[in-house]
Design a binder for these strands. Structure first.
Length: 870
RNA sequence: GGGCGCGUAGCUCAGCGGGAGAGCGCUCGCCUCACACGCGAGAGGUCGCUGGUUCGAACCCAGCCGCGCCCACCA
């Protein structure tokens, strides 16, 4: 009956995982039928990884979390679909391919746009399956049979449809406006792709001579090169120093342009000199001021990051840094720099290229978000969209939406969704195809990747077509992510979802930890702080963030999953290999406990009703409580407590106590009753642990007696109050305390291993458990103190004492030492309790039951001390 | 400049108003017929500091010190 596999004393993930995963795939359980009914269905759309990406710790954590939800739903009998697919990831992918081309000595310009696109598709062919294989290694039960890509034809047409629709509604528009220009990538980027970095700059004081010839206005700037595009000087309306100059003009040095001096509230009279040079072409604030006052917008820095022909000839073609030096030198020559000082401030940088952002006025496409944001705000307010944990993420989400600004959606890239916009002279057409007639040219720009990602939960299901998939699996249930893309992605999906489908795309948004490197830095490939999840699963080289170096053992996927769930809560955590090891140990423990049970049980079915002893009724009862608690934690997305509770309950209650208690009966020839309970305990453990540790649990499940299907589609247990037994729980609680006290006694007294201590049990409530207590505590319990023997000590246990008799287990001298120590402790406890009860405030104001409990404790301590002193 | 969070055992982290917890590490004893990736027993915390509220505070409030994150383009 015992399977050969059960002879192994180690659980070997490498041997099991591939085999078990194949079983799931063959059974097709990851691909639910699209019945057209939303009722009875459950879905999650995976945050699509970059097509050419590879699995990092964030994927592993988020993937596990989602897989737990999906597996739980599947076990509840729902048609559970975990929507799979990848993102074309415009900038990231384009850069990878460009780098590959560079290795061949090519540039994308040499290839041309079409051939470049072909190269990207080829690249995707080569690298696109990597991440899929890695998700499988993790055990992720994604619907691999129905994989999507954001550049699939159907997806592309969904994107075109959305763009057109939003254009027709007036939300999407084209404007000449100030954007964040990334000089490295040569494209505009959105506000969210900009990060502030602290930079050491020099603040220059520059004198601008007045047109009247009587003196000069001094302005402060950290970017002297932009003065070439100055079109005004602004001062505060309240600044008396300058009030007489308002309406006059200054002459721009090096250029000679006439600069009107105007008053604007934006200017802070207390900063710098109180006079501000206005450069509408290269500063967002100045741009606003310029528009308010109708100033000319001059561009001296081009999209290539070089000085344009709008500047004096001697500066043209220079890089920004170069131009700055040249301008400063020229000003110095003319004696116009009246001072400098070091200046530390935050400067926008491109999140992608790391380059300093060049604010430029550029003709781009924008999406006005103000109307779209309204229902997204309402959904979070009325609780139909729920973040987990609710605080602080609901607030973070709302703050952003309530201050939302237009979104620059066009990108000057080659890889992505090309804008469905055609131009002919002054005419503009928006739609899937060019209008009739000659001479229409398509806009060369592509959309921000997040524009297409925003459609993910429904475009993957075939929207805008009313497909069976869409009807069955939309709206989805859960969207799980780390906080870093709440704005970039989550909020936009909500806005698009409501606008386009009329429904929230999901209702629950668990926000999980960001896993940091063990040293607290961000995990990143470039910093060398990343840890490859696959090397934890299958073993591999330890990265240098670990001082000790060496190799990771092959912990296995279950171990990694457990470790990630255990270490991640709501706040950021440092990666903790110990948790992964704990997961491996748990898998091994489960394996070995299963071996014990499966190699000994009789031919019976799991049966909680077979309980015949207190300990049987106790473990059955405990398992119901565990089921209830774990289910609640999982439903609330509190994975870490759930997983730690499962660990603790299985290890200590099932293994350390119950299995040990069950052994004598298990080893008897006729063991049906205990077998039924043991199998029930094992079965319940496997069910509860399966979403987190699918591989070991499925493997053990296949070894259970009797024909059964896959654990992955077995029924998630519902707690049954009928099986609770508070009496048994209380009795066993006393039993554990007694066994603990007796074991401590043995240890402190230095009892010889294997030799029982003799004693007499003089306590209430152990009738049935007498022999078990003796066995597990290693005592030889006799009926009464024999004639002529002098007891050595009393061990206090719930409901009485164990009187210790002389034996050859230890030297009695040790006993007295221990008794004295115990007296000390009790005296301390009594003093503490007396002091508390002497406090009038406590006695008068604390709830009666608390005071009463304190009195009972005091009495118990006094009683114990009396017994010791007898 | 706004906002949020964190500081609990050597380490990584739970707990968030009624006598300080887990895993690892450490100490002691055990290769006990499921498991040494194991079993049993222990040691180890002024719960960042200072005030306050309360009969009672790691937990609530205020201030401070030290970290971190998000949002924000005062030249």
């Amino acid at each position: 009956m015992a399977d050969d596999r059960l002879t192994r004393t180690r659980y070997e993930p490498a041997e099991v995982e591939g085999r078990v995963f194949a079983l799931w795939e063959e059974a097709g359980i990851f691909h639910p039928e699209a019945t057209g009914e939303r009722e009875g269905s459950y879905s999650i759309a995976v945050p699509p990884p970059n097509v050419t990406g590879s699995l990092h710790m964030g994927h592993a954590l988020n993937g596990t979390l989602q897989d737990v939800c999906i597996r739980l739903a599947r076990m509840r009998g729902l048609r559970a679909k975990w929507i799979y697919g990848t993102d074309h990831a415009g900038i990231a992918t384009q850069r990878q391919v460009e780098r590959a081309l560079a290795d061949e000595g090519l540039t994308k310009e040499e290839l041309g746009r079409e051939r470049f696109a072909e190269r990207v598709w080829q690249w995707r062919e080569q690298h696109g399956s990597t991440i899929t294989e890695q998700f499988k290694r993790l055990g992720a039960s994604l619907d691999y049979e129905d994989e999507r890509f954001t550049m699939d034809p159907a997806y592309v047409s969904a994107v075109v449809h959305v763009f057109t629709r939003l254009y027709e509604k007036g939300y999407v528009y084209r404007d000449n406006y100030m954007v964040n220009w990334d000089p490295g990538l040569r494209t505009a980027i959105s506000d969210l792709e900009v990060e502030q970095r602290t930079v050491e700059d020099t603040l220059y004081m520059v004198d601008y001579p007045l047109e009247s010839g009587s003196g000069a206005v001094t302005v402060a700037t950290v970017r002297p090169e932009t003065m070439l595009a100055d079109t005004a000087i602004a001062v505060s309306p309240s600044d008396e120093r300058y009030s007489r100059l308002v309406g006059e003009a200054a002459i721009l040095p090096l250029v000679g342009r006439r600069l009107p001096i105007l008053a604007d509230d934006y200017v802070d009279p207390d900063f710098g000199t109180g006079a501000l040079k206005i450069t509408p072409g290269h500063d967002p604030h100045d741009f606003e001021i310029g528009r308010r006052h109708g100033l000319e917008e001059i561009t001296v820095i081009g999209e290539d990051g070089r000085i344009t022909d709008a500047a004096p000839e001697r500066f043209r073609g220079m890089e920004v840094e170069e131009a700055r030096a040249a301008v400063v030198a020229a000003l110095r020559e003319e004696g116009l720099i009246s001072g400098t000082r070091p200046y530390e401030h935050d400067v926008p940088h491109s999140h992608r290229s790391g380059r300093r952002i060049e604010p430029l006025i550029s003709l781009q496409w924008f999406c006005d978000m103000s109307e779209l944001a309204k229902p997204a705000i309402a959904a979070a307010r009325d609780g139909s969209l729920r973040f987990h944990p609710e605080r602080p993420w609901t607030g973070v989400y709302l703050d952003w939406l309530e201050n939302i600004r237009p979104w620059c959606i066009s990108r000057q890239l080659w890889w992505g969704h090309q804008l469905p916009v055609w131009y002919r002279g002054e005419e503009t057409h928006v739609g899937p195809e060019a209008p009739e007639g000659e001479g229409w040219e398509r806009d060369a720009d592509v959309l921000d990747t997040w524009f297409s990602s925003g459609l993910w939960p429904f475009a993957t299901l075939g929207w805008p077509e009313g497909t069976p998939e869409l009807r069955t699996f939309y709206p989805t249930n859960v969207l799980s992510t780390a906080r870093d893309i709440i704005f970039l992605w989550v909020a936009r999906m909500v806005m698009f979802g409501v606008e386009l489908t009329g429904e929230l795309p999901f209702t629950d948004v668990p926000i999980h930890s960001v896993v940091q490197a063990p040293d607290g830095r961000r995990m990143s490939k470039s910093l060398g702080t990343g840890i490859d999840p696959l090397q934890l699963i299958g073993g591999g080289e330890r990265p240098p963030v670990y001082a000790e170096g060496g190799e990771f053992p092959a912990y296995g996927a279950d171990a990694l999953r457990f470790g990630l769930m255990a270490m991640s809560s709501s706040q950021d955590v440092r990666f903790n290999e110990e948790r992964v090891r704990q997961g491996r140990d748990l898998a091994n423990k489960l394996w070995n406990a299963s071996r014990l049970v499966l190699t000994r049980v009789g031919d019976v079915a799991p049966d909680p009703q077979a309980a015949e002893t207190v300990e049987d009724r106790w473990i059955v009862s405990r398992l119901e409580r565990l089921t209830d608690s774990v289910t609640g934690q999982l439903d609330a997305f509190r994975l870490s407590p759930a997983v730690l509770e499962l660990y603790g309950a299985f290890w200590s209650e099932v293994c350390d106590w119950y299995l040990e208690l069950a052994k004598p009966r298990l080893y008897e020839p006729s063991n049906d009753a205990v077998s039924g309970v043991l199998l029930h305990a094992l079965e319940r453990t496997l069910l509860l642990l399966h979403p987190v540790m699918p591989f070991v649990t499925e493997e053990v499940w296949s070894l259970l007696p009797g024909a059964r299907g896959l654990l992955a589609v077995s029924t998630w247990p519902v707690p049954d109050d009928e099986l609770l037994d508070p009496g048994a729980e209380e009795a066993m609680g006393r039993f554990f305390a007694a066994a603990g006290a007796m074991r401590s006694y043995r240890d402190e007294v230095g009892a010889r291993p294997g030799t029982p201590v003799r004693g007499v049990l003089e306590a209430e409530g152990y009738d049935e458990l007498h022999p078990q207590l003796a066995r597990l505590a290693q005592f030889q319990l006799e009926q009464s103190v024999p004639e002529g023997e002098e007891p050595l000590a009393d061990i206090e246990i719930p409901g009485g004492v164990v009187t210790v008799l002389p034996s050859d287990a230890f030297d009695p001298g040790e006993g007295e030492r221990r008794r004295e120590a115990e007296r000390e402790r009790l005296r301390g406890e009594i003093e503490r309790a007396e002091r508390k009860l002497a406090n009038e405030g406590f006695v008068k104001k604390a709830p009666a039951e608390v005071v009463e409990a304190e009195r009972r404790k005091l009495e118990a301590f006094r009683e114990a001390l009396r017994r010791l002193d007898e």
